[in-house]
């Protein structure tokens, strides 16, 4: 019974990780790629680590000390992923915006108005 649950969790995790790869290839600019590359890998990692945790708990229940160590350390790895992934995405997005990459097809961009007012004015004048 638990085996089937583990396989289902592994399958969901793999699906979302593959989705992250496809999203990285399909989306048009940095920000949308970050959407795919951050959310999908985090969600997939939760499921794969969850399946390993269930495996460890099952081994622990059957009386092996290795199982508990496996489960606790996997929880540690999961917490590390959950803490670091969104922060890294935030840093990359900020760096991309400061180094001048513009969102493709953006309807509105309030940040650009704030950070580089003068250059924006010049650009719009040239365009008009």
């Amino acid at each position: 019974m638990l085996e089937i649950l583990i396989y289902i969790l592994l399958g969901i995790g793999i699906f979302f990780n593959v989705l992250a790869g496809v999203g990285l290839l399909r989306f048009p600019d940095v920000y949308t790629r970050l959407h795919a590359g951050t959310k999908c890998t985090t969600f997939g990692s939760i499921f794969i680590c969850g399946s390993v945790i269930i495996l460890g708990l099952k081994m622990w229940y059957q009386g092996s000390t290795d199982g508990s160590v496996l489960a606790i350390h996997t929880v540690g790895a999961l917490v590390a992923i959950l803490l670091t992934n969104p922060t890294g995405a935030h840093a990359i997005a900020r760096a991309a915006h400061k180094s001048g990459v513009e969102p493709v097809g953006a309807v509105v961009d309030s940040l650009r108005k704030k950070s580089t007012k003068k250059t924006v004015k010049k650009k719009t004048e040239v365009k008009e």
Binding site: N17, T41, I48, L70, T74, A80, I81
Partner: peptide
């Protein structure tokens, strides 16, 4: 095309490698 794109790819690879190591740990116990 730009450097941030490459970093996004690198960040994704990092996360997948971490998950891969966890799976390796479970596989070899």
């Amino acid at each position: 095309p730009t450097a941030p794109d490459r970093i996004v790819g690198l960040d994704t690879i990092n996360t997948i490698v971490i998950v891969g190591m966890v799976v390796f740990g479970a596989a070899f116990n």
